[in-house]
Write a protein that binds this DNA or RNA. Sequence first.
DNA 1: ACTGGCTCCTGAGGGC
DNA 2: TGCCCTCAGGAGCCAG
Length: 271
Amino acid sequence: MPELPEVETIRRCIAPEIVGQTVTNVIVRNASLRWPVPTDLARCLPTQKIISVERRAKYLLLRTDAGSAIIHLGMSGKLLVCRQNKAVEKHDHLDLVFANGKILRFNDPRRFGCALWTSDDPTQHPLLATLGKEPLEDGLTAEYLFHQSRGRSLKIKEFLMNSRIIVGIGNIYANESLFAAGIHPGRAAGRISLKRYERLKAAIKEVLTNALRQGGTTLRDFCDAAGNPGHFQLQLMVYNRAGESCRSCGSLIQQIRIGQRSTYFCKKCQR
DNA sequence: ACTGGCTCCTGAGGGC
DNA sequence: TGCCCTCAGGAGCCAG
């Protein structure tokens, strides 16, 4: 399940392969993703050169002079850079074909992902315009989280997973960040002190940075655009560890549900 | 203005 | 071996 470290890993992997390359063809095998793949994508992208591959939240932005492709991997999406003659597999929904004979192939079994086209500034697209702070940028401060959370009763874990507040944090890294900060995931966001948000902010940056350094987390099938898995799963402190002992204090890791999501924590280390 | 619940989808895994 | 059930989750959307 690609979160910020996984999407950024993919971005870093595909950027050197496709920046400066000209798109010669777009093959849409299945347009029925989360939103229909717009016909403009296949109409406008060919003949365009990729200027840059950027990331905003969990969206990848492929910029050209004519506009930008916006790609989200959803739950199960993968991007692979490969030769054009690679056999088409199940759920290979989309290919961007480049002049050098390579292709960028989008595969997504659950089809929660999307591939869109905009001729305008992609950061102003409706899906991106209202996004919150990037966690690895300086704009994310304890004061920001503190002020955004005042008067709000929702649980801190849901607050962290709200992309209008802060982006890129999905279930794995919300659990891990809260453990690293020593905060119980069910605590009301509005009742956490500035001092504890200071610790949480540092924990988020540290967890995401470490995960990025490890090439992301591979639980089942995440891999980068070259097919390599990540390694951060070896360092998970709580996620997917229900009933196992806390790596810090030895207590058993608890599993509860918050917002229809599996939530893992150590009741001794997190208050 | 918030908040919680529903929804899309496929594949893995468990029980029988 | 096969079938059925449950679970996994990003994030938009909507009702209260």
